[in-house]
Amino acid sequence: MPTPTKGPRLGGGPAHERLMLANLAAALFTHKSIKTTETKAKRLRPVAERLITFAKKGDLHARRRVLATIGDKSVVHELFTEIAPLVAERDGGYTRITKLGFRKGDNASMVQIELVLEPVTPKVRAKRTASASATVEAPEAEAPEAEAPEAEASDVPVEETETVEASEPVAEEAPSEAAAEVEADAAEKADDSSK
């Protein structure tokens, strides 16, 4: 349950705020994306996500709970038949708010709130070491299987080969006059700093 906000309500009284949020939710479910002020979108997000959670349950009681908030039966039907199956695999986070800038007349921060209907991709978990996974994640029956490849790798005989690499000696380079001057200057500076 979201915590109550401080300050004045949207639109005046509590009944007007409830009606505004219900109408915004109905418009969101109908059009899948709406443009509104940032304050209204932030207040709409928990209401819309709660209604989508009811729609995912799909039973008669959930449908009546949604109908108590949104009075339009066609919007509720669309929510239960079209939107709920698309977000069935998603565990929350059904809406996305994107900032658009400021409104010209009163400089109100405008946003676009939209339904996230893309299929969810499961996260790939990184495997831990064999001993950690045996104690934390894997049951005792799977622990010996995880250690078996390590034992097999140590039993494989290693082939030893004789390879000799021969390299030719590098010819001595005669230092140039400029290099000799740089080395002499570096040696003088080292002597001066040590004194």
Rank of each mutant, 00 (worst) to 15 (best):
T53K: 01
K57W: 09
G58F: 02
G58M: 01
D59C: 12
H61K: 11
H61N: 13
A62Q: 11
A62R: 12
R63G: 09
R64E: 09
R64D: 07
R64V: 05
R65N: 13
R65D: 15
T69D: 08
I70L: 01
I70P: 03
G71S: 09
G71W: 04
G71F: 05
V75N: 07
V76Q: 03
V76I: 04
H77K: 15
H77L: 15
H77A: 15
E78K: 11
L79N: 02
F80V: 01
F80R: 03
F80S: 05
T81N: 07
E82L: 13
I83P: 04
P85S: 05
P85G: 01
P85T: 04
L86Y: 06
V87A: 03
E89C: 08
R90Y: 04
D91H: 09
G92A: 01
Y94Q: 00
T95R: 02
T95I: 02
R96K: 10
I97T: 03
I97Y: 06
I97P: 04
T98E: 14
K99I: 03
K99T: 05
K99A: 05
G101S: 04
G101W: 01
F102L: 02
R103F: 00
D106F: 01
D106I: 00
N107Y: 00
N107A: 00
A108C: 01
S109N: 05
S109F: 00
V111T: 03
V111Y: 00
V111M: 04
Q112T: 12
I113P: 00
E114W: 03
E114C: 07
L115C: 00
V116M: 02
V116D: 06
L117G: 02
E118Q: 07
E118T: 05
V120G: 00
V120Y: 01
P122D: 10
P122Q: 10
K123V: 13
K123D: 10
K123N: 10
V124K: 15
R125Q: 14
R125P: 09
R125M: 15
R125N: 12
A126C: 09
A126E: 14
A126I: 14
A126W: 10
A126H: 14
K127A: 15
K127G: 13
T129N: 08
T129S: 14
A130K: 07
S131D: 12
A132T: 13
A132P: 09
S133W: 07
S133R: 12
A134V: 07
A134Y: 06
T135C: 12
T135G: 11
V136M: 15
V136I: 15
E137V: 09
A138P: 03
A138Y: 14
P139D: 07
A141P: 02
A141W: 03
A141Q: 05
E142K: 07
A143V: 06
A143D: 01
A143M: 03
P144A: 02
P144T: 05
P144L: 02
E145V: 08
A146Y: 12
A146D: 09
E147Q: 14
E147H: 15
A148E: 11
A151V: 15
E152T: 07
A153Y: 10
A153W: 10
V156E: 14
V156H: 10
P157Y: 07
V158S: 08
V158R: 10
V158Q: 10
E159R: 09
E160M: 13
E160T: 14
E162I: 08
T163S: 14
E165N: 06
S167E: 15
E168G: 11
E168S: 15
E168L: 14
P169Y: 10
